[in-house]
């Protein structure tokens, strides 16, 4: 995991007992985690779980009520600006400059880091190429698609060649093609030895990209570890989804005989089983019910730990 192979090098981000409340309501309630150099670490949680507040604290944009943060070795918030000098950020909502072309966006952003124009101009074509925006340097922002803007934001976050990238829901709102392209680029950055912290509520994204994840709910870390390990430890290996008219009734009467756990939402029953064969044989005799048998995934872990109620 430690691809840089430097056990003595400081962790890119250490968070200890972080707490922050707004108006008496705890947004973050005692969170601790530590990134390893070169890994991709995912913060997962439903809306309002405290992901964005955690990131804001890490960047020194919000002063926590208590806790310690060290970002790229610097104490935050006291030395937050020095730390941000070596960090790249992709915010949740695009805040590219609509008045500028793609290249100007990068040039102006480089100045915020104190990078000389000549150095920035040398780097910009390379970054645009990396973002799949080669030849788009003079494109106005209004002419770029949502995916292109997202990639330009990623290129902007790399202008200072950061040690650590913080990505807040990097693929929210993108179509599948655009998401895959972002994932591919992030993997390339990991291959180059960058460390990434990302927040997401897409479980497939976390499973695909993250070496380790922490699931946050109501401001606390519910569990953390490698995605495959968490799936292996925390949940039954197989899921049989039963849906169609009468699925809820069927689950009420029969599911307990076959599944250790069964959750019903609307007209779908999710049966978590060690061995799916007896249940599938039983369901064969109930042709009015449709079934889907699949291995358990991170989403099942997530829903088990954070519940199925809506969070808005």
């Amino acid at each position: 995991m430690d691809s840089a192979g430097q056990p003595s090098a400081p962790s890119p981000l250490v968070v200890r007992n972080l707490a922050k409340s707004y108006g008496g309501r705890a947004a973050v309630d005692g969170i601790s985690f530590e990134l390893k150099r070169g890994e991709c670490f995912g913060l997962l949680g439903p809306n309002g779980a405290g992901k964005t507040t955690t990131l804001r604290c890490c960047l020194g944009l919000t002063t926590p009520d208590s806790g310690d943060i060290r970002l790229v070795g610097e104490a935050v918030p006291t030395r937050a600006r020095e730390a941000r000098q070596r960090v790249g950020v992709v915010p949740q909502f695009d805040n590219l400059d609509p008045d500028f072309t793609a290249a100007e966006n990068l040039l102006v952003y480089a100045r915020y880091f104190g990078i000389a124009d000549a150095d920035a101009k040398r780097r910009i074509p390379e970054l645009l190429d990396f973002a799949g925006l080669g030849g788009k340097d003079r494109s106005k922002l209004s002419g770029l698609s949502g995916g292109m803007k997202r990639r330009l934001t990623l290129a902007r976050a790399l202008i200072n060649d950061p040690d650590l990238l913080l990505l807040d829901e990097p693929t929210t709102g993108l179509d599948p093609q655009a998401r895959h392209l972002i994932w591919e680029r992030l993997k390339r950055l990991l291959g180059d030895g960058k460390t990434i912290l990302l927040t997401t509520h897409f479980m497939d994204e976390a499973e695909r990209l993250c070496d380790r994840i922490a699931i946050i709910d109501a401001g606390r870390i519910v569990t953390q570890g490698a995605p495959r390990a968490l799936i292996g430890e925390l949940i039954e290996p197989s899921v049989v989804e039963v849906f169609g008219d009468g699925a809820a009734h069927w689950a009420h009467d029969h599911a307990a005989g076959f599944a250790r756990r069964c959750e019903v939402t609307g007209e779908t029953a999710f049966c978590y089983v060690e061995d799916a064969k007896p249940l599938l044989a039983h369901l064969d005799r109930r042709p009015e019910l449709r079934t889907l048998h699949r291995p358990a995934n991170l989403e099942d872990v997530f829903l088990k730990l954070t519940g199925r109620e809506l969070r808005d």
């Binding site: 600006r81 941000r84 915010p91 805040n95 400059d97 609509p98 915020y112």
Partner: peptide
């Protein structure tokens, strides 16, 4: 509206 200030604050700008 454009959140330009937010973008600046993510860089080492106070």
């Amino acid at each position: 509206v454009q959140k330009t200030w937010d973008a600046m604050l993510n860089a080492p700008v106070a």
